[in-house]
Structures are given as structure tokens and as C-alpha cells.
Computed example of a mutant assay.
Amino acid sequence: MWDIRRLHTLRTVAARGSITAAAQSLALTAGAVSQQLSALRNEVGVDLLRPDGRTVALTEAGRVLLEHADGIFAAVHQAENAVAAVKGTVGAALTLAALPSTVARIVAPALTALGSHHPQLTVTCLVTDQAQLRELTLGTVDVVLGQRYHHLPDTAPRGIDVTPLLDDPLLVVTAADQGDERPVALRELATHNLAVPPPTTDCGQAVQHACQQAGFTPTARYLTADIAAQLTLAQAGLATALVPRTAIAPDTPGIRKVPIGDHPILRRLFAATRHTGTANPTTAAVVAALDAAARRDSTTYLP
């Protein structure tokens, strides 16, 4: 019988693109990863990887094997969840991946509530805006707090369950003395110097899409995905920023923040878990805490 750990190693190498990157992800040496791959190749009796420039790629046999491996890992997760459901208790450890812009208003309150209700649970939080759902499918994380902008199709990868949390509008942020509290028509920003994320990001694409719908191409004077930098530029009166509401601390000084009145830009926050037929009490507890924190934030916000 093939060693499932070696299958996981092959899967990780295929996803990361190189043995070195896979070794870093698995907290192993490159030599240890190579040894596991060689042992799996001997077990299977055929090459599973081939050189592809500076990276590696699956052979046809490797691709077929991984197609079946997905089902094997899904069955393992199903078995783990079934046993956890029989136990009926929240476990001791879980890894959550979350966007930096959600930490203050959603993640921190959720983890505080979990600490009160489930003190035995230790949550490791990976704060990143890169490829969270891929980490979920690889088993590196257990729950993802992710985002999808409204202009993108509402689809989830195969084997992923998504729980909607919050529709989070982008607000127009300027220096405190620039304008009143009325909603702003997006077309009014056509002459503004904007601080927005690069167009290679989901948020940057959403801003571009909405501005084009409003009839203009935005003037991006400052390109940065760093929300703290965007707010600093707005505070200084150097730029107008478009920032998700939950990414702005309510007591941030020196800024004016108002909604977009005609072409709202929404990011939809969600919690994602691996799909299994049986609910896992631990992931369910974390998703419920994130949902409660998102609802609380939504109802307490005063625009």
C-alpha cells in the first residue's frame, strides 16, 4: 500500500512548483522531500515528475495519480470529521488563514470569543493575502477568511464549502476637512488623485471595473495595496483612497469616510472550509465565531 504521506509530498511539490518550495511548506529539507518522492516513484514503478525549466511538472502518470489522490485525501478528511463528530467536542488546534484587513474588526473579536468558549482550542492564524484557498486544499490551513469582489463570478473551487459572512463596501476616504458626509458619486472621483491597489489585485480590478462603468478611467497617482499607506496619504490630503469599511478603524483620526452613492464597490467576505459530508465541530466553531464577529461589526457600524 502506498504511503499517504508520500502522496501528500507529491501533491505539495506539484502545487508549489519545485522541491525547494515544497520543502519550505512542509518544514522539511529538500533532501527529505527528494527521498520521499524517490520512494513513491519506486512504489509506483514509473516517473511521476519531470524537469520543466527551473521547476518540475507532473508526468501523465503523476497527473493521474494525483487525480486519485484528491479522492484519497477527501476520504481521510471525511473519516477525521466523522470521528470528531462522534466525539462531539471542539479540538485542540486549528489553523486559520485571514486577510490582513480583516484582523482588527473580525479575526481578533472572533478569536477572543473562541478563547472564552473553547479555552482548549489553540488557533494559529496565518495573516496573508496570497492564495488562501490553495492552502486550504493542500491541508496547510483549516479555515480561510477570504474575499471576493462583486464583479467576479460567485464560484468556489471543487471540494470547498463557502459560508458568506459580510458584504463590505469600499468607502471614499479623504482628509477630514475635504467635503461633507454625503455619499459621493463615483464619477466625482474622475479628477481626484487616487491611492488604490495595483490593477493586478482583486481590489484594484474592482476599482477599475466600477470606474469604467461610471464612465471614466481612474487617475491612480499612488499604487499600493498597503491600506495603512492609503489612509496616510488620505490623511495628508495628498490622495483620495477607496478602502474596505472593515479595514478602517472607527477611531482613525484625520479622515473623512463616506459611501459611494451610485456604483458601490463591494467585497464579499466569506469563511471557507474543506467539503466533507460530516460537520467538524472545531471548524464549525471557528466559522460560527467569524460569522458572529462579522454580524456584530455590521450592526454596530454607523456610516
Rank of each mutant, 00 (worst) to 15 (best):
A113M: 12
A113Y: 07
L114T: 10
S116P: 00
S116Y: 12
S116V: 14
H117L: 15
Q120Y: 11
Q120E: 15
L121I: 13
L121H: 09
L121N: 07
C125F: 05
L126W: 04
V127L: 07
T128Y: 00
D129K: 04
D129H: 10
Q130Y: 02
A131H: 15
A131M: 07
Q132T: 00
Q132F: 01
L133V: 01
R134F: 04
E135L: 14
E135G: 13
E135I: 03
E135D: 14
L136R: 02
L136I: 01
V141P: 00
Q147K: 14
Y149Q: 02
H150V: 02
H150Q: 14
L152Y: 03
L152T: 13
P153Y: 10
D154T: 13
D154W: 09
T155P: 00
R158T: 15
G159D: 02
G159H: 00
G159V: 00
T163R: 09
P164G: 13
P164F: 12
L165R: 14
L166D: 08
T174R: 15
A175T: 10
D177N: 10
Q178T: 10
G179Y: 04
G179H: 02
D180G: 15
E181G: 07
L186G: 01
R187F: 03
R187S: 14
R187I: 12
E188W: 11
E188C: 05
A190F: 02
N193K: 08
A195T: 03
P197E: 05
P197I: 02
P199W: 08
T200W: 09
D202M: 07
C203D: 03
C203I: 05
Q205I: 04
Q205K: 14
Q205E: 12
A206F: 04
Q208P: 02
Q208I: 14
H209I: 00
C211S: 11
C211L: 06
Q212W: 13
Q212C: 08
Q213S: 14
Q213A: 15
Q213H: 13
G215K: 02
T217N: 13
T217I: 12
P218L: 03
P218C: 01
T219W: 10
R221L: 12
T224D: 06
T224Q: 03
D226M: 03
I227H: 11
A229S: 11
Q230W: 07
L231T: 04
L233T: 00
L233P: 03
L233I: 00
A234M: 11
A236S: 15
G237R: 07
G237Q: 04
L238P: 05
V243N: 07
P244Y: 02
R245A: 15
R245H: 04
T246Y: 09
T246S: 15
I248T: 12
P250T: 03
D251Q: 10
G254P: 06
R256H: 14
K257Q: 15
V258L: 06
V258D: 08
